[in-house]
Computed example of a mutant assay.
Amino acid sequence: MIVRIMGEGQLTLADGRLGELNKLDDELLAEMENGDGPGFRATLQALLAKVRELGEPLPDDTLEPSDLILPSPDATLEEVQELLSDDGLIPGGA
């Protein structure tokens, strides 16, 4: 799976790793629903850090269609809400 972090680039991520990201995605959704700005910010940073940890960066001169697009680290709560699906940011979540 190809994951894009807006403003950073693309990474390849094994589909089997999505489960590891869903817990953070579920936390992010709960914080957004509760209007917890500081919690949202911390969890967004943790989610992006986990994607970077688990993923393998694609070369800068490579552009592949992205299967998953995640917000930039400085995205606002409102910007992230626009990217949400019923599953959150990561497919297969609660």
Score class of each variant (00 low, 15 high):
1 M>E: 05
2 I>G: 11
2 I>C: 08
3 V>G: 06
4 R>D: 12
5 I>H: 13
5 I>T: 12
7 G>R: 06
7 G>F: 11
8 E>H: 07
9 G>W: 09
9 G>N: 08
10 Q>D: 07
12 T>F: 05
14 A>W: 03
16 G>E: 15
16 G>Q: 13
17 R>V: 09
18 L>S: 01
20 E>G: 15
22 N>F: 00
23 K>C: 04
24 L>V: 04
25 D>F: 02
25 D>V: 01
29 L>A: 09
31 E>R: 14
32 M>L: 15
37 G>H: 11
37 G>D: 12
38 P>N: 02
39 G>I: 03
39 G>V: 01
41 R>C: 04
41 R>T: 13
41 R>Q: 13
42 A>N: 12
45 Q>E: 11
49 A>W: 00
49 A>E: 12
53 E>Q: 13
56 E>L: 09
57 P>F: 10
58 L>W: 04
62 T>S: 11
62 T>W: 14
63 L>G: 04
64 E>H: 03
65 P>A: 08
66 S>W: 05
68 L>F: 00
69 I>G: 02
70 L>D: 06
70 L>F: 01
71 P>K: 01
72 S>N: 10
73 P>K: 02
74 D>H: 09
74 D>V: 03
75 A>F: 05
76 T>C: 06
78 E>D: 13
79 E>A: 13
80 V>H: 02
80 V>R: 09
81 Q>W: 12
82 E>H: 08
83 L>V: 12
83 L>A: 06
83 L>T: 10
84 L>G: 03
88 G>M: 04
88 G>T: 11
89 L>N: 02
90 I>D: 09
92 G>D: 07
92 G>C: 04
93 G>T: 13
93 G>R: 00
93 G>Y: 01
94 A>F: 08
